[in-house]
Design a protein around this nucleic acid. Structure first.
Lengths: 145, 145
DNA sequence: TCAATTAAAGATAAAAATGTCTTTTATTAT
DNA sequence: ATAATAAAAGACATTTTTATCTTTAATTGA
C-alpha cells in the first residue's frame, strides 16, 4: 500500500507538471504530460478530464490546444487534488477502518493516527500547486523516475 | 483511500482481538473473531491463515481449537503485521510513486513525507500487539463499530 | 469551408483486491 | 476406531482499480 492511489499519484504529478510548464500562458498536450511524468497516456487523459470537469485545471481542444492552469488555481492547495481523486478518507477516516471511531469510541490507534492524519493534511494544505514551479523548472525536483 | 488496505485493517483488528482474548492461554475461533471485529468470516479466515503461516499468530485445528498468540508474539510490534500484509511501501516508498525518489533526486513532497512516513513507522514499531490488551478487556478501546 | 489537431466521452479490457464456497486435514472426545 | 469440530487449502466469484481503444466534439489555420 502506498499513501495515495496510483490515480492520485498521477494526478498530483500531472498537475504539478502542467503548472510549471504553463506559467507563461502556453498550453501543454497530454502526450507531453504523460511523457513528462512517466504515466500511461490514455489513463492519464481520463484523470485530467476529471480534474478539468472539477475545475482544478483547464483545457482547450484543437490545434495548439492542451491543458493549462490559471493563476488562481496555482494558489490552490495540493489537498484539493487529493480530495478530488481519493476523497478525504486519508484525513478523517479511522486507521483500522472502524465506522464510528472517535474520541469517545476510539480504536487502539485513534489518538496516535489522529496526529499523523493531521500532519498529512497540514502538509497538503500548506503546499500549493504553484509552489514547486521554480524548482521544477531548474531541475531540482523530479516528477518522473 | 485509507492508510492501510482493508485486508490489513482486518488483520490488525483480528490480531489485537485474538491477543486480548487469549491472554489466559485459551483459544478463540474464527466465528468469534469475525463477529468481534465485524469482518467477513471467510475472508478473515484467509487472512489469519496467512498470518499463521508467517508465524505471527498460532492455531490448532479440531474441537476446542482456534487461534491464539504466544507470549513472544505479544511483544512484537504492529509494524510486523503491516509489513506481512501490506509490505513496507508505507514506510519507504515515494509519496508520488517515483521509482528513484531520494535525497538527491527528490519529488516535490519527498522531504515532507519522509517525516510523515517516519512517524507512521515509529508509531507502528513502538506499539506492540499486546499493548492494548487491558484497555480492550475493560472496553476502553474498540475493534468494531 | 475544410482538413488537421487535440481533448472529451463512452465502451471495453486487464489486473488487483475483496469476498465466498467447497473440500481436505488435523485434532479431540466418545 | 469413529464422529464431530475447526482450521487449512484450493477454487471460484465479485468488485474496484488501472489501463486501453474507439468515436465524438471543439478549435484552429489554411
Amino acid at each position: 500500500m502506498a499513501i495515495f492511489s496510483k490515480t492520485c499519484e498521477y494526478a498530483i504529478r500531472a498537475v504539478l507538471y502542467v503548472a510549471h510548464k504553463t506559467t507563461t500562458g502556453n498550453k501543454v498536450g497530454i502526450k507531453d504530460i504523460a511523457a513528462g511524468i512517466d504515466s500511461p497516456e490514455l489513463y492519464l487523459a481520463k484523470i485530467l478530464q476529471d480534474l478539468s470537469r472539477k475545475g482544478l485545471i483547464s483545457s482547450v481542444k484543437g490545434p495548439n490546444g492542451g491543458f493549462y492552469i490559471n493563476e488562481l488555481s496555482l494558489s490552490r492547495p495540493l489537498s484539493d487534488i487529493v480530495e478530488a481523486v481519493d476523497g478525504n478518507g486519508l484525513f478523517v477516516g479511522c486507521a483500522l477502518g472502524l465506522k464510528q471511531c472517535s474520541e469517545v469510541n476510539p480504536c487502539p490507534l485513534h489518538h496516535q493516527f489522529k496526529a499523523i492524519r493531521d500532519q498529512i493534511h497540514a502538509v497538503l494544505r500548506t503546499n500549493t500547486i504553484g509552489k514547486f514551479n521554480e524548482e521544477l523548472v531548474n531541475g531540482l525536483l523530479s516528477l518522473k523516475k
